[in-house]
């Protein structure tokens, strides 16, 4: 297992490149942490209407993704929202 981990470990140069790519997207977009926090809170409000989610574990960030068109990479809002319980709020209705 240890040996496999060793081979799977990412080069630090690649780690740096990936970190920078994300960093520069938010730098260039001029999207402040405050605005990100507001977006996050709004997302929590909306999703919470329909299901119980883990607000603590929610993670949003601006990343790059390949577009369907031919414009190459475009910025995208990525949100990871852990769901605690899908049914509960549905059953209540």
């Amino acid at each position: 297992m240890g040996l496999m981990d060793f081979f799977r470990k990412k080069n630090s140069g690649d780690v740096a490149k990936d970190r920078l790519k994300l960093l520069l997207i938010s730098d260039r977009a001029n999207c402040s942490p405050e605005i990100m926090e507001m977006i996050k809170n709004d997302i929590i409000k909306v999703i919470s209407k329909y299901m119980e989610i883990d607000a603590e574990g929610l993670d949003i960030q601006i990343t790059q993704t390949e577009s369907d068109g031919r414009n190459g990479n475009v910025p995208a809002l990525f949100a990871n929202i852990p769901i605690k319980d899908l049914k509960q709020t549905n059953q209540d209705k």
Binding site: G13, D14, L20, K21, L24
Partner: peptide, 17 residues
């Protein structure tokens, strides 16, 4: 030497970014 090891971004990486 560090670029070859993968422990430093290459010139191409920097230009790309």
């Amino acid at each position: 030497d560090m670029v070859k090891r993968g422990d430093m971004m290459s010139i191409d990486d920097v230009v790309d970014i």
